[in-house]
Design a protein around this nucleic acid. Structure first.
Length: 252
DNA sequence: AAAGTTTCCAACCGCCGAATC
DNA sequence: TGATTCGGCGGTTGGAAACTT
């Protein structure tokens, strides 16, 4: 049977949200929550698809969203996490409190991918291919410490292992090869984690680490209904980071 | 100053897995 | 047990803003 569309498109508004719509959505969610996205727009009196409402809330209106530039620490964290996880934006976002998967995805495609490409080409010389534009925004995020004063709290912390080093070396090889080269695998071999890896390891984790697993609880709204596989993924991300950290420390 | 180009980001689309019936 | 619904995810895109010529 043909799957029904996520929402009937007739008469539903699309495109950018207005301030009024934002207010309506926020007010409704604050009052009634968002137990049912599909029904929400009708209840709130919005001419929007439920999916659209959800996206707007998740990516923009949620109170714990951190607006503003990405700090260099955040960017480095994204790069490291992406090297380990690939395009698992939601998992990466879960490690960066206040950041959304959509935002991280955008940053990756607009800044970080290019940054990696140029650093790998010049092997260390970060040749600014693109001239600085939008000074208060993107450019500052790329060039070392951000000038953003208050929007990113000073005490901001990632859910990473305490000793996790966020290498900012320009020629850093962000692949897992660098992190795991001391584990016996060839250093020239790029370590790729694919889905089968995760499914296998996650399956193993149920038996081996089923109890006492520490789960990160850093993402208020999203963690309202955390799936166990997400918790497990968090566990493994943390484990890998700690492992790579231990490996690098042991070499000192 | 204007036209053309590039960059960025909010939003949409389609697919998938889990939950429910 | 299969069908259906729903929420969530990642890929992609359109338009606005910024920048260059």
């Amino acid at each position: 049977m043909v799957r029904a569309p996520c929402c009937e498109k007739m008469g539903l508004k699309r495109g950018p949200w207005t301030a009024d719509e934002d207010m309506t959505l926020v007010a409704h969610i604050e009052q009634h929550g968002h137990s049912n996205w599909r029904a929400l727009p009708k209840q709130a009196g919005l001419l929007r698809c439920g999916k659209s409402c959800r996206l707007r809330w998740i990516n923009y209106l949620r109170p714990d969203i951190k607006r503003g530039n990405f700090t260099s620490e955040e960017e480095d964290a994204i790069i490291q996490l992406h090297a380990m996880l690939g395009n698992r934006w939601s998992t990466i976002a879960a490690r960066l409190p206040g950041r959304t998967d959509n935002e991280i995805k955008n940053v990756w495609h607009t800044h970080l991918k290019k940054r990696l490409a140029s650093s790998s080409k010049t092997s260390g010389q970060a040749a600014p291919k693109h001239k600085a534009k939008k000074p208060p925004m993107a450019a500052s995020a790329l060039e070392g410490p951000t000038s953003e004063p208050a929007s990113s709290s000073p005490g901001q912390s990632f859910s990473m292992s305490p000793g996790q080093s966020l290498s900012t070396s320009s020629s850093a090889d962000y692949s897992m090869a660098s992190s795991l080269e001391n584990t016996g695998s060839s250093s020239s071999e790029e370590f790729q984690i694919d889905d089968s890896f995760w499914s296998e390891t996650l399956a193993m984790s149920v038996d081996s680490f089923g109890s006492g697993m520490e789960t990160s609880d850093t993402f208020g709204a999203d963690s309202a209904s955390p799936s166990s596989s997400n918790d497990e993924m968090d566990f493994w991300v943390t484990l890998f980071m700690q492992a790579s950290d231990i490996q690098s420390l042991s070499q000192i």
